[in-house]
Amino acid sequence: MPKVEIRSESCKSCGYCVKFCPKQVLAIGDKVNSKGYEYAKVAKPEACIGCKMCGVICPDAAIEVYK
């Protein structure tokens, strides 16, 4: 099953990955990183299809995808 990993320290909470994931796998979480950003989290891991769209759109290279 495909898997996404979010590097929480690199995330700036822009919300692009949440917007563009076709399967609503991602969400902005309620925990903050050391810079104070509420980083993205994997809310529905089982729905991921490994399409990489989240990784492509993330400005800050905070997402890595496995398949």
Partner: peptide, 11 residues
Amino acid sequence: MEKIYARTKGI
């Protein structure tokens, strides 16, 4: 499991 989207070495 293979990494299919990785943070580039260019940064």
